[in-house]
Design a binder for these strands. Structure first.
Length: 615
DNA sequence: GAGTTGAAACATAGGCTCCG
DNA sequence: CGGAGCCTATGTTTCAACTC
């Protein structure tokens, strides 16, 4: 029990009442009472069950911001980035952590450009280059080593610097096993440099192939060639230390420069799309460096590195966060919440499955109440909620309003002037967005921001509820028509029957029977004979019907026909059948009883418009 | 759009390596 | 040198593909 005392200028009293009332709608488990100086408002519980407990979850990598990340980096116990990611975030395991770190390396260290090794028949020979670089290791051992390196290089499609380092180390191991000669760090370093230079001999051709594949065929061959040369020049001017390692931004710089020069010298435009395509192609050829990421402590002290890590987390695909952390009202309770606060003829509700926006899971629920005491004039009333709290102000700026305006309500049987905008009619539409982080348009938390994922879910939820409304409205309309037809027939038929009896000079016909047949109704008739009561259920409709027929009699019935249940209450006997009657068929229900007993028939399970009760 | 199904990845628990 | 975090095995959840 929570009690609050408030003091206020009560000019906006009706809004306060609305607020409390709306709160009651989305909190059907709570009993809410508002006492004002004059008058009070009460909302009783609709359920005894508390909302399901929520589970606490760690943040999702897509949902954090730089400030939060820095704080987390500062306070974590882990020292490796991998451990930090796996320990502090939800939905991050070994695999995801690895791919985040790879992305991070791309940002932080840059990628290493991988070149196509020269083909064996080309002039440059890896084996010869490596052999030259090695000294004092003996003829045989050097040959084995160089051959091993050359073989492994030939196997690869493209090679980055770290690939060569790896290959040379493997070759050295193999050569040591075969010949017993050790190839130490110094020798390996020289061999790597030699092999690297050999691989990098023909950058022009390599880049030409990439650029040509990435640009449209409309580009002149000569232009592409000169562009590739200029790009290769950028790679060539670097000193050996960089190992063609570059970030995407640096690559963009290269491409921009080469493109600008091409545009200037050759007078050929090299547009944004072409540049992006070239960057994409070259970036694809690049290899992520295998370097260890920095320790968590160093990242925590360095805003730029942390930002790179954040970018990497954003770029990596990570599966959606668990949804156990949300507490939806559930469709049933949305309905009962509406039922207790609004007096309407019809209620519909829908709860969507959880969705995700930017790392925060969310659930959208919608409810519609229609008819009854709701005001028929003017637009529908829209109730907006975020995490069970009503949103009062800035209705027009809210995503929910936008979505509602975008729906063609005429499809769902509501009046919508002009075919768009808020619909008119005696209806209340309720939308609830539950999320770990509801995106509001502003600090004041008045309106939900236009996040596409959330808007989509809102629309689907509202449409789901509106479909129910539509089928209800359609049914109501057809029942209305049926009633009118029946009214007309029941005035015309007796007169016709009378006239007919006059002309044919026969007894007057049973018009109820005919009426039922004309209206395709289900007809229930009673025949009493010598203490035997027969209830005849005739189905004139086109579908199978299964009405519940309950006969209330004042004496104990006997010889009750099959399928009946007899219950005695306060001296009255309730005999209930649930017969299945096929189309154009009839079913006879029988029992025996004293002659002087009275009986009363009640038929349910069929709309009253489709039933002719002639008992 | 809903439902189903198989697969892959994450979560969790318990021993071992490595940082400070 | 000590203790805490990292690494490996089993169960569960989510995702993607597919069909209606």
């Amino acid at each position: 029990r929570i009690e609050l005392e408030m003091e206020a200028n009560m000019r906006a009293r009706s809004q306060l009442r609305d607020y409390v009332k709306h709160t009651a709608v989305v909190n059907p488990h709570a009993r809410i009472e508002l006492r004002e100086p004059n008058g009070e408002f009460k909302a009783e519980r609709a359920t005894d069950r508390l909302p399901a407990d929520t589970e606490e979850i760690r943040p999702h990598p897509h949902g954090v911001e730089l400030g939060t990340l820095l704080k987390m980096l500062d306070s974590t116990d882990s020292y490796s980035v991998s451990g930090f990611l796996q320990g502090e975030f939800t939905r991050v395991g070994g695999k995801t952590a690895t791919s985040v770190i790879e992305r991070f390396n791309d940002h932080h260290y840059g990628c290493e450009m991988a070149w196509q090794p020269p083909k064996t028949h080309d002039d440059t020979d890896i084996e010869a280059a490596v052999t030259d670089a090695v000294a004092n290791k003996g003829r045989e051992a050097t040959d084995v080593f160089a051959a091993a390196v050359a073989d492994r290089v030939a196997e690869r499609e493209r090679l980055a610097h770290h690939n060569i380092v790896e290959i040379v180390a493997n070759g050295a191991d193999a050569a040591e096993v075969d010949t017993g000669t050790a190839f130490g760090d110094t020798v390996q370093g020289k061999a790597v440099a030699a092999a690297w230079n050999a691989v990098r001999t023909d950058l022009d051709a390599d880049l030409y192939a990439l650029v040509d594949g990435a640009t449209s065929t409309r580009k002149d061959d000569v232009v592409v060639e000169s562009f590739a040369e200029r790009l290769a020049a950028k790679f060539d001017t670097e000193d050996d230390e960089t190992r063609d390692r570059l970030t995407r931004d640096a690559l963009r710089g290269y491409v921009d420069r080469a493109a600008d020069m091409t545009a200037e010298r050759d007078d050929v435009s090299f547009g944004e799309t072409a540049r992006e395509n070239v960057i994409g192609a070259i970036w694809n050829a690049c290899r992520t460096v295998p370097d260890e990421p920095p320790k968590v402590r160093t990242i925590a002290d360095d805003r730029d590195t942390a930002s790179a890590l954040l970018d990497a987390m954003r770029e990596t695909d990570i599966i959606a966060p668990p949804t156990g952390c949300l507490s939806p009202i559930t469709a049933d309770l949305v309905r009962s919440g509406l039922e207790k606060e609004f007096d309407a003829d019809f209620y519909a509700s829908a709860t969507r499955d959880a969705g995700v926006h930017g790392g925060d899971p969310f659930i959208v629920e919608a409810g519609i109440a229609y008819g009854g005491d709701l005001a028929a004039e003017g637009g529908v009333e829209l109730l907006r909620f975020a995490n069970r709290v009503p949103l009062v102000y800035q209705r027009g700026a809210c995503a929910t309003t936008d979505v509602l305006k975008g729906i063609g309500w005429r499809n769902y049987g509501l009046d919508q002037p002009g075919g768009s905008g808020l619909p008119n009619g005696p209806a209340v539409v309720m939308i609830h967005v539950a999320s770990t982080n509801v995106p509001f348009t502003s600090e004041s938390k008045d309106a939900i921001a236009n996040v596409p994922e959330i808007e989509d879910e809102i629309e689907l939820a509202v449409r789901e509820a509106a479909r129910e409304l539509k089928s209800y409205l359609n049914k109501r309309q057809s029942m209305q028509q049926r009633r009118e037809k029946q009214d007309v027939l029941s005035t015309v038929l007796p007169e016709m029957a009378e006239k007919l009896a006059d002309i044919t000079e026969r007894d007057q016909l049973e018009i109820d029977d005919s009426l039922a047949r004309i209206m395709n109704n289900v007809l229930v008739e009673r025949h009493v004979e010598n203490g035997t009561v027969k209830l005849v259920v005739e189905n004139h409709s086109g579908t199978n019907e299964s009405p519940d027929v309950t006969e209330i009699v004042s004496a104990e019935p006997s010889a009750v026909s099959d399928g009946a249940r007899v219950v005695e209450m306060d001296g009255e006997w309730f005999v209930k059948w649930s017969p299945e009657v096929e189309s154009d068929d009839e079913s006879v229900l029988e029992y025996e009883i004293d002659d002087d007993a009275s009986f009363d028939l009640d038929v349910t399970g069929i709309e009253s418009e489709k039933l002719t009760n002639n008992a």
